[in-house]
Computed example of a mutant assay.
Amino acid sequence: MSQAAKPLSEGDIAACNVIPAFEASLLFGATEDELADQVGWCRTALLEPDARVSGASTYKHMELMFEKPRYAEFVVAAVRAYDVKSLGVVGLACKTMPNIGVAMACHARYQKLTNRTATYQTELRADGLHIREQRDAPRLGSELISDYTLLVAIRLLSLLSDAPIPVRAMYSRRARMPARERALYEETLGASVTTGSALAELVLDPSILAFGVRKADAEMESYFRGVLENALPMTDETPKLLVSAQAVIRDQLQQGAPTLSKVAQALGLGERTLQRRLSEFGLGFQALLDDTRKTLAEGYLKQPELTLAEVAYLLGFVEQASFFRAFRRWYGMTPQAYRMSI
């Protein structure tokens, strides 16, 4: 569910995510004592089972390395050290998916299990498939790690795919980037890097969605999906208001798109009260409706007896074309393509 970013805290990121950058740091001017004192990272602690670090520590780390003489080379080395297993169980699950589109959808659903510092949106537009990152921390380390994360994303897609990843452009939140750093990033991506963007963003060729995953395994995919679903927060841990509101939305969808007024009335609340209480969780009503539809769509498309027109109706869309547009916004592919891939 799309929510406003929370203050960075301990446990934001599984330590397996930062180990490649930790090791690369030692090759480009940092010492283990320096990383322990200034960042709070200790090798023995990072290697402990289920170890986690704070998002703030990753920003401190990038700021520390930015002051070293060969920062750009450090970033590229850390990216190249990344493997799918660096994402933990989520990465291993992605390796089993049938194609890149489904692997990206898998990562989007379960990413919060290993990294809560950013959110990602995928949108298919005229100029390509856009992957946007959202971070709220207004500091240099946040901007630096956004660039790093986009480079890592291409590295991981390349490891998963059975074909090269065609990158069209990268957009950085940083106002300026040294020429040497930009050149290294552009060489790594095979595409231009533009600074001064409001959001960190990649633009890819949409064809990647159909690229096969080289180690796809339907049996293991089913296993990992079960593991990851069980690892998601249980319903009773979700705020009761959100559970109740989603239940009302599900019940009302077959009568068309539920309105704020109707859902508030069913919950025994005023419209403004419902809006205010949803905002406490970083949500608006439209975002809650959208997230509920998205989750239901996944389940409906796994039922081959349902036509796409019936799925659209069950989701409260008056026109099938509206459902198609929403689905492409959610997953960067059509419902037919998604159904064929599962």
Rank of each mutant, 00 (worst) to 15 (best):
residue 318 V to R: 15
residue 69 P to F: 04
residue 221 E to V: 03
residue 132 R to P: 08
residue 71 Y to M: 12
residue 310 E to V: 01
residue 318 V to H: 09
residue 158 S to E: 14
residue 106 C to W: 01
residue 292 T to D: 02
residue 164 P to T: 07
residue 96 T to L: 00
residue 339 R to L: 02
residue 72 A to M: 05
residue 80 R to A: 08
residue 198 A to L: 12
residue 326 A to D: 04
residue 119 T to V: 12
residue 236 D to W: 14
residue 200 A to T: 14
residue 209 L to E: 09
residue 35 L to P: 04
residue 308 L to Q: 12
residue 12 D to S: 13
residue 231 A to C: 11
residue 306 L to S: 04
residue 221 E to Y: 02
residue 259 T to W: 00
residue 21 A to Q: 09
residue 275 Q to C: 09
residue 208 I to R: 11
residue 18 V to A: 10
residue 37 D to K: 13
residue 130 H to I: 15
residue 291 D to H: 14
residue 112 K to C: 13
residue 165 I to K: 11
residue 217 D to C: 05
residue 201 E to P: 13
residue 19 I to W: 10
residue 300 Y to Q: 06
residue 235 T to P: 09
residue 9 S to M: 07
residue 70 R to Q: 07
residue 120 Y to F: 15
residue 26 L to M: 02
residue 93 A to S: 15
residue 335 P to N: 10
residue 242 L to W: 03
residue 63 E to A: 07
residue 223 Y to Q: 08
residue 100 I to R: 07
residue 103 A to M: 01
residue 267 L to F: 06
residue 230 N to H: 10
residue 63 E to Q: 13
residue 290 D to A: 08
residue 262 K to F: 00
residue 259 T to P: 09
residue 229 E to T: 00
residue 193 V to Y: 15
residue 101 G to E: 07
residue 85 K to I: 06
residue 122 T to A: 05
residue 124 L to C: 11
residue 144 L to P: 02
residue 235 T to R: 08
residue 102 V to E: 04
residue 297 A to T: 07
residue 170 M to W: 15
residue 294 K to A: 00
residue 208 I to L: 06
residue 126 A to G: 12
residue 55 G to T: 08
residue 94 C to N: 01
residue 199 L to E: 00
residue 340 M to Y: 07
residue 5 A to C: 06
residue 34 E to I: 03
residue 160 L to P: 07
residue 271 E to H: 06
residue 223 Y to P: 01
residue 270 G to K: 14
residue 9 S to V: 11
residue 296 L to S: 15
residue 326 A to H: 08
residue 29 G to Y: 01
residue 289 L to Q: 06
residue 147 D to K: 10
residue 59 Y to M: 03
residue 145 I to M: 13
residue 202 L to P: 14
residue 24 A to M: 09
residue 45 A to L: 15
residue 276 R to C: 01
residue 208 I to P: 05
residue 77 A to Y: 00
residue 61 H to G: 03
residue 121 Q to F: 07
residue 183 A to I: 03
residue 71 Y to S: 11
residue 77 A to W: 00
residue 251 D to N: 12
residue 34 E to L: 01
residue 233 P to I: 08
residue 156 L to W: 15
residue 110 Y to D: 10
residue 242 L to T: 03
residue 13 I to R: 12
residue 134 Q to P: 01
residue 296 L to V: 11
residue 317 F to Q: 05
residue 166 P to W: 03
residue 108 A to C: 07
residue 230 N to P: 01
residue 74 F to H: 06
residue 203 V to L: 10
residue 132 R to Y: 11
residue 13 I to P: 06
residue 65 M to N: 02
residue 175 A to F: 13
residue 232 L to M: 12
residue 196 G to W: 14
residue 93 A to T: 06
residue 185 Y to T: 04
residue 281 F to V: 03
